[in-house]
């Protein structure tokens, strides 16, 4: 027995590594396969729409699919504008939180606040939507929107009438809340990765805290912060359920942010399982394909920006 065992074991060993690594590589390849399968599924699903409607699909502004008129511009517009509102609000707030956490907050406060902000990312999007529909929309309708219409009504985006409270502004606000944790945590990490010497040099030259942030830290962390912002944008563009409940589901392009609208993701969510004709279903698939391509590009840009940050700040520099 004892004479046989070593040879047996040795043969086993030689095979072990290639088998194990092959196995791991196979599952690594599964991820690639999943991404490719998503792309193929979307393309083949939207083939009929691509063939029949072509690229003008995204420029046509008439959405009456049951009568065969399918222009997805209102959805594209709604997605872009609601995400833009979300980002305009979320970026300054996130940077403010990140700067506070890195620069000003006392140590005992950093973790609780960081945790609360992360919790915001953990809440399921459907709950944001429910809260937006039942609490935020009525609040905006009764207080904020009339005030904005009265005082800033000369701007087309704030022109009345105030309707149900659901619409682009409400969707944008909800999106801002959902994007804040993403931008905050990446901006915070980027700022933490700035070498202490940079900050100390600024402070030693007599800069105030804010000046050291503006002159030493923000420029150094710039590409990380942009990466975080773009990653947040990717999230906002694709967000579905929260928006579906507060956008107002009306395919129209209006300048006023109080008006109901529609987005690419929410039109898919609302109409796909009820799409009766093949072309209708295929058109919704094409919207999904568009969403996939846009978020893909946005995420690639974000990752490239963030990668350059990682190169500059090797692991272990966080304090």
């Amino acid at each position: 027995m004892s004479a046989v065992q070593p040879t047996l074991r040795r043969r086993h060993l030689r095979l072990g590594d290639p088998i194990f690594f092959g196995f791991c590589a196979l599952f690594g390849a599964v991820i690639l396969a999943v991404v490719i399968a998503i792309l193929i599924s979307l393309i083949s699903g939207s083939w009929e729409a691509l063939k029949n409607l072509g690229l003008s699909f995204f420029t046509g502004s008439d959405w009456a699919p049951l009568e065969g008129r399918m222009g997805a511009w209102p959805m594209l517009y709604g997605t872009l504008v609601s995400s833009l509102i979300g980002m305009v609000i979320a970026v300054p707030v996130s940077l403010g939180i990140a700067i506070f956490l890195v620069e000003w907050a006392p140590h005992w406060l950093r973790e609780p606040i960081g945790f609360l902000v992360e919790l915001l990312a953990a809440i399921p999007s459907i709950i944001f939507g429910m809260w937006g529909m039942l609490v935020l929309a009525p609040l905006l309708q009764q207080h904020t929107e009339p005030w904005l219409a009265d005082h800033l009504g000369f701007l087309p985006i704030f022109s009345g009438p105030v309707l149900a409270g659901t619409g682009l502004l409400t969707a944008g606000l909800i999106l801002a809340l959902m994007v804040i944790p993403i931008v905050t945590s990446i901006a915070r990490d980027a700022m933490r990765a700035v070498p202490v010497s940079q900050r100390e040099a600024a402070l030693a030259l007599g800069a105030t805290r804010w000046e050291s942030v503006r002159l030493a830290i923000l420029p150094y962390a710039r590409s990380g912060i942009f990466g975080g912002i773009i990653l947040g944008l990717g999230r906002a563009l694709g967000e579905t359920m929260a928006v579906a409940l507060v956008i107002g589901t009306t395919p129209q392009v209006k300048a006023s942010l109080f008006q109901p609208a529609y987005t690419m993701s929410s039109v898919i969510a609302n109409e796909f399982s009820e799409a009766t004709t093949d072309l209708y279903r295929s058109a919704l698939m094409e919207i999904g394909l568009g969403l996939f391509v846009v978020t893909l590009l946005v995420n690639v840009v974000a990752r490239v920006l963030l990668r350059s940050v990682n190169h500059r700040a090797p692991a272990g520099t966080t304090t």
Partner: peptide, 8 residues
Amino acid sequence: LAGVPSIV
């Protein structure tokens, strides 16, 4: 893959 919207 992480960036693909869940609806997609």
